[in-house]
Computed example of a mutant assay.
Amino acid sequence: MTLGQKIRARREEMNLSQADLGKRIGISQVSIDKIESGKTLKSKYLPEVLSILGMPLDLISATVGRGAAPAQSTVSAVDLGELVPVKIAGKAKAGEFISIEDLGDWEEPEEFLDTRDPRFPHARHLGFEVEGDSMNALKPRPIQDGDRLSALAYEDIADRFPLRDGMIVVVQRTRHGGHEREWSVKQLEIYEDRMEFHPRSTNPRHKPIIIKRDSLADDGVTVEIIAIVRRLVAEFNL
């Protein structure tokens, strides 16, 4: 099955018309048809098509590597935007603190491909595996258990990228003098006197993290944003 055929099958599985998919990206139905028919797999919109459909971006390089037909084998990083490997930094699971000493036992992290953000060419790309149901009611697209997130390291872009309401972020909480940490995915709400990191969940046990500005309270827990989520990268059997 060609990449275009896989795209068509996945689109139909999601009950999207070619016009529907095109509207989400800002291109025409004809452009989607050309991608699916294999006439224009050089399209710079191909990574976005795959991302919206929840298909791994490494399908692009896999298509080239297998020696595809001429119409497909001309796909390059220049045409699509530079593809970069994104290492899985770890799992994001609300409510689970991990001992820092245990982190050294992890195996070599997995990788997937994503496009480099041209606004921040030197920022580190981080991947996260989501566990649990703390964002399963996020709209318009929930983040489910098992999803992968592609993100940018916040400290690399903080001076050029102001925080805004509604951003999806990865939050780190540490306790016991930094010996334990929790990573979780939250939606940011900004107020004059505080910042709130909200779960979007059907499970009532998940609670927001509220950080008041200029607060002198110290409960031994530190909270910081470590990554800004760019996109959700789901995996499907193709």
Rank of each mutant, 00 (worst) to 15 (best):
T74W: 06
K139V: 15
K87R: 09
P162E: 06
L138E: 08
P109L: 01
F161V: 03
G146T: 01
R173F: 10
H176Q: 07
L83H: 06
P162N: 04
R141C: 02
A94L: 00
I168G: 00
T174N: 00
H125Y: 12
A158M: 09
A94S: 10
S150N: 12
L103H: 06
A158R: 01
R164A: 15
G90H: 07
D117A: 14
E129Y: 03
D114K: 08
V170R: 02
M167Q: 14
D147L: 04
P109E: 01
V75I: 12
I168P: 00
G90Q: 03
A123R: 13
S76E: 05
G166F: 10
V170E: 04
L126P: 15
G132Y: 03
V169I: 13
E96Y: 09
V169M: 06
F128L: 08
R160A: 06
L138P: 12
S134M: 02
D165Q: 09
E108G: 10
I157C: 13
E155T: 09
A137Q: 06
E108R: 08
A151Q: 00
E131P: 06
E155W: 00
R141G: 03
S134F: 02
A94W: 00
S99A: 15
S134K: 05
V84M: 04
D102Y: 05
K93V: 07
D147E: 08
E82G: 10
G166T: 13
E108P: 00
S99T: 11
L80C: 13
V130I: 11
K139E: 15
A123N: 07
P118S: 06
I157G: 13
I98L: 11
E96M: 13
F112S: 05
Y154A: 11
M135I: 02
P109R: 04
E96L: 08
R164Q: 15
V169L: 06
L103Y: 12
K91S: 15
A158W: 02
V169C: 08
R124A: 14
L80F: 11
I168W: 06
I143P: 01
M167N: 09
F97P: 04
S150H: 07
G95N: 06
A137C: 09
H125G: 04
N136K: 08
A77R: 10
S76P: 09
E101G: 14
P85E: 05
Q144Y: 08
D117F: 11
Y154E: 09
V75A: 10
E111Y: 01
D133A: 12
D165I: 14
A137V: 04
G166I: 05
E131F: 10
G90I: 04
G132E: 00
I100D: 02
Q144I: 08
F120G: 12
E110S: 07
F161G: 00
D159I: 01
L152P: 02
G104K: 11
R160D: 01
G95A: 11
D79C: 13
L80Q: 10
A123F: 05
E110I: 12
L103D: 12
R160V: 03
G166V: 03
E82Q: 05
R124N: 08
V130H: 04
K87P: 02
L126Q: 07
A94K: 08
S134G: 11
A92T: 01
A92S: 09
L80A: 10
L149K: 15
E96V: 15
R124W: 01
E82C: 11
A89Q: 12
V170W: 04
E111P: 03
F161H: 07
G127R: 05
L149Y: 09
T174L: 04
L126D: 08
